[in-house]
Design a binder for these strands. Structure first.
Lengths: 197, 197
DNA sequence: CGGCACCTTGACTGGTTGGTCAGGTCTGCT
DNA sequence: AGCAGACCTGACCAACCAGTCAAGGTGCCG
């Protein structure tokens, strides 16, 4: 039985933990920081979560579903070019709206994905393999150019996530302007040309 | 005056520090780990470097020069398409040969580039601004398609560094195969099509 | 081969951090 | 109102970690 207070505080804690973990990495984050952001005492954090590790795991568990949704939403019966472009747009939108989640994921994979290995080689791999088959069919139907489906997917990840993960760098180079300014149009053109049969 | 032993040990320490910092991030790394990898005692590390911070800074100072070299090597008087493709190839080669450096950089930028802000907004920004001018000239000369120079450069960074930084993820998806297998050809095609006037 | 500067380390310190606990406070229900 | 259970916290602990130091070892020069 979960109470109203439990729901509110768990949400607050995860929100704060996302802030801190995504900005400092797992080892860089401290419970005191998270407690400060959440506006709760440190022992209170540990009343709701067994350990720092448990908070991190809770975030990662939610994350993969969110992360995979745009790829999962690709319609095998749709037009190849349209579907892939729409996927890219959804993914870019996620970088814009959920940059902290992107950085949490990046931090984790950068360090060898110790806590995500199972899910990546399970759910994620299965989904990517499936969509690779779909992309190959679009190729054989002549809807898009013959490109390696895996590298195509990786390139969408790389280009969209880069704007969230390397935000600090881009911002410094572009004098603080919104890093994603013009990104939509650029990526649209890029993938449009790449997929042109 | 630097002795033979000093040179050897400094090199050993920085080598070990690169291993550990790139895999664990700054806060995640401990002097004991670095000492272990270097095969030296912890106090001995601190005989050669004033602090953990100093080791990290020494690595970062070397890094930016290495990192910028491929972009700097672009020849303004060459053919636009050839020059940009060659730049992309050099950058991809660096991801292959120096993945630890790539991850060290990624770790740093991901956490807001606290120790690199000056160099990024200084040297790096200047270089990028200069090369953007060169790229615009190539565009006006009709050598390459009209694309935003900044996003073009970002896309090269994103696509090449992704193979080093997200190595763990790609490896899990591709059943442990070399993540960069086929990347050369894919990126060649991608940028060739993008730059086609 | 003697001496001096350079090199190395075991043992220690002070500060930080994840986590515990005993006891107090609040909330919702009857 | 009164009480049971949920919620909260100050004080504390053990482990860890960057950095110190005094004392001994080593390489190199005359």
């Amino acid at each position: 039985m979960t109470t109203r207070i439990q729901r509110r505080n768990r949400r607050r804690i995860l929100e704060a933990a996302l802030d801190v973990f995504s900005a400092q990495g797992f080892r860089g984050a401290t419970l005191d920081q998270i407690a400060g952001v959440a506006g709760l005492s440190k022992p209170n954090l540990l009343y709701y979560f067994d350990s720092k590790e448990a908070m991190h795991r809770a975030l990662l568990d939610d994350l993969l579903d969110i992360w995979l949704a745009p790829l999962r939403a690709m319609n095998p019966d749709g037009n190849g070019r349209e579907e892939i472009l729409a996927y890219m747009r959804r993914k870019l939108q996620m970088s814009r709206e959920l940059p902290r989640e992107s950085r949490l994921f990046a931090n984790e994979v950068l360090q060898g994905a110790p806590r995500l290995a199972d899910q990546i080689s399970g759910d994620l791999k299965r989904l990517v393999d499936d969509q690779a088959v779909v992309i190959r069919r679009w190729i054989s139907m002549g809807q898009i150019a013959a490109v390696d489906p895996y590298h195509l997917i990786f390139s969408i990840w790389a280009l969209t996530q880069h704007y969230a993960d390397f935000d600090a760098q881009i911002r410094l180079i572009r004098d603080g302007a919104d890093p994603m300014d013009g990104a939509d149009g650029f990526l649209e053109t890029l993938f449009d040309k790449l997929l042109q049969p």
